[in-house]
Design a protein around this nucleic acid. Sequence first.
DNA 1: CGGTCTATTCGATATGTCTCGTAAACACCT
DNA 2: AGGTGTTTACGAGACATATCGAATAGACCG
Lengths: 105, 105
Amino acid sequence: MVLGRWAPLSHPRIEDVALDDLLRALADPTRRAIVRLLIAEGDRPCGTFGLPVAASTLSHHFRALREAGLIRQWDEGRQRMNTLRLDELATRFPGLVENVLDAPD
Amino acid sequence: MVLGRWAPLSHPRIEDVALDDLLRALADPTRRAIVRLLIAEGDRPCGTFGLPVAASTLSHHFRALREAGLIRQWDEGRQRMNTLRLDELATRFPGLVENVLDAPD
DNA sequence: CGGTCTATTCGATATGTCTCGTAAACACCT
DNA sequence: AGGTGTTTACGAGACATATCGAATAGACCG
């Protein structure tokens, strides 16, 4: 059986990011918390977000964010780093992400 | 059995509108099409949107938009009118709806 | 009253999502 | 090699959503 971190970490090109996926990704409070933390405190590995969900659940959300085009991930040693794709997203959806994150929950 | 247009058409107060619900409502292309048409051509009854879905499906989407705080509905004769709650929404989520609707799909 | 128009609710089906626990993979360290 | 730390994939459960057709309600019109 194939488990573990095998998948080659595919990221969508920014011009292929669908508005549907972006909005669905941002429509979850846990995922918004991840994105807000990335904005507030910069790039971080998955394990440093301190959110009240199981590790496997968190992993699911990171995948959703990555596949929606919101974050870029890469491996560094045993950690997986995350960065926001804000600049890229701004070319296709100017101001949208900031606008959502500034909104009250 | 109780069917037909009985429900008393409840609308959330704008301060009770949750970002989650708003984003989920806008994350559907049929619902975005409804909202875009309301912006482009003004208040309209449900039957005048010309979208390729069954009437019952459309009804489901109108309900979702109403309960998410995006539209206000009222009955006029046998038709049900729809208007965007743009001004109200702007007080709580400034620019958000416009930003989403201006985005490419 | 009977017929028509508009829109809804209901029931069913198919699909997607959030959550978790468990098991596995890979990197690092001793 | 063996142990530990980080993260993921898988499987399962509970719940939500999108879609449709059929039945129904109320408004209007003749």
